[in-house]
Nucleic acid binder design. Structure first.
Lengths: 200, 200
DNA sequence: AAACCGATTGACTGGTCAGTCAGCCAGCGA
DNA sequence: TCGCTGGCTGACTGACCAGTCAATCGGTTT
C-alpha cells in the first residue's frame, strides 16, 4: 500500500530542481517559477512544501553541511595521525564536489562565500567546521606532531580557504577538473600545510 | 582658477559614500537612494556620473584591483627571492585591508567571492592576479628555490585562497583583527606555503 | 454515494526599486 | 542685463517577482 509515497516524492523533486536551477543561474536570478518549471510542478506547490524561496536554499545547505560536520568530527574521533585527519577532511570536501558538483557549487557560491546574505544566517554552522579543523591542528600541536608557534585558528582558516578556492577554481573553470586533479589537489593542500607545520 | 573642481568632487563623494553603504548593507540590499543620501546628493546625480548602480561597483573594484595587479607585477620585476616576492604579495593584500577595510570588504564580498554576479564580469582581471602569483611560483621552481613537483596553478590558488579566507575572517569578525594579527597572518601564510614548497 | 481532506493548481496582488526626464539654478560670457 | 550651459534635483513610471488564495482534483472514510 505504501500510502504516504507521493508527498516525499514531490518535495524531493523540488529540491533537486532547485539545485539544478540555482547552480545554473544563481540564487538571486532564479525566480520561484523557474524552480517549479524545472521540477514539472505548479508554482504554488513550492509554497506548499517550503515557507519561502530562502527556505529551499537553507534546507539544501543545512542538509549537506551537517554531513560534512559529522564527517569531520567522526574523522577526528577515529584517532589517526593529525596529518591523516587533515587529509581525510580535505578528501571529504573534494569528494563532496566530485559526487555532486552542482550542489557543492550552490553551497559554496550562495552560502559559504555569500557572507553578507546566507552566510550570515548559517555563520554558526560554518564556524563549527573551522573550529573542528582548528581542534585537529591544536591536538596535533599538543602531541608534538605540529610545531606549536602557529595559531591553530589561522591554520584552520588557511587550510579551509585553500580548499574552497580550489573548488571555486573548478566550479568556474579557472583550473581543470579531472579525477587526477581532484586527487592531486587533496594531497597538495595537505602536503603544503603540513610540511609547513611539521617540526623541522 | 582651477575651474574644474566641482565635477570631480561630487563624483568622488558618491564613490566614497557607495563604499560605506555597500560595506554596511551589501550591494544587493542597498538602494541607489541610500548611496545618494549617504553622499548628501540628489538621487538623479548618481545617474549623472554613472550609467547604472552596477557601474559604481565596477569602478570601485577596477580602480583598486588594478593597483593590486600593478603591485604584484612590480614586485615580481624587482627580482628578490621567490619567497620574498610571495611575502610582498601577501603583505600588499593585507595592507590593502588594513588601510581601507571597507573598500576591501566590498571588493572581496561583492566581486571576488561573488563569482556568479560581478565575479563573472571581472573574471579576467581576477585571473590575472592568480596568473601573476603562479608565475612567481613557476620561476621559483625553475630557479630551484621551490620544488618542481607541484603545479604552480594549484599553489597560486591555495595561496590566494588562504589569504582571502583570513581577510574574510577579519571582515566578519570570525577571527580577531589587530595590527599584530595582520603581521602574523602575512608571515603565517608565506611560511606555511613556502616551508611546504621549498626543497627539503 | 456523500462528506471529507490533503495535495495540487495558477491567476492575481502588493510592494519594491532601477532608471528616466522635465525642469531648476548658479555662474559666466556677451 | 540677458541668455546659455551643464551640474543638479527628485517625483514618477514601468518592470519584475515573492508570496497569497480560492478553486479543483483524486483518493479515502463513513
Amino acid at each position: 500500500m505504501a500510502s504516504k509515497a507521493p508527498p516525499i516524492d514531490k518535495r524531493r523533486q523540488i529540491l533537486d530542481a532547485a539545485i539544478r536551477v540555482f547552480a545554473r543561474q544563481g540564487f538571486h536570478s532564479t525566480r520561484v517559477s523557474d524552480i517549479a518549471d524545472e521540477a514539472g510542478v505548479a508554482y504554488g506547490l513550492v509554497y506548499h512544501y517550503f515557507k519561502s524561496k530562502d527556505e529551499v536554499l537553507n534546507e539544501l545547505f543545512s542538509a549537506r553541511w551537517s554531513l560534512l560536520l559529522t564527517a569531520i568530527e567522526e574523522t577526528d574521533r577515529e584517532g589517526a595521525s593529525p596529518r591523516a585527519k587533515l587529509e581525510a577532511v580535505a578528501g571529504f570536501i573534494v569528494d563532496s564536489y566530485r559526487h555532486d558538483p552542482e550542489l557543492m557549487k550552490v553551497i559554496i557560491v550562495e552560502v559559504t562565500r555569500a557572507a553578507n546574505s546566507f552566510g550570515r544566517t548559517h555563520l554558526a554552522e560554518i564556524r563549527r567546521a573551522y573550529d573542528s579543523i582548528a581542534k585537529i591542528v591544536a591536538d596535533g600541536q599538543s602531541a608534538g606532531a605540529f610545531r606549536g608557534d602557529i595559531d591553530p585558528t589561522f591554520v584552520s582558516m588557511s587550510f579551509y580557504g585553500a580548499i574552497e578556492q580550489l573548488l571555486s577554481g573548478w566550479i568556474f573553470e579557472v583550473i581543470p577538473a579531472s579525477d587526477t586533479d581532484f586527487d592531486q589537489a587533496r594531497s597538495l593542500v595537505v602536503a603544503t600545510i603540513c610540511d609547513g607545520l611539521e617540526p623541522r
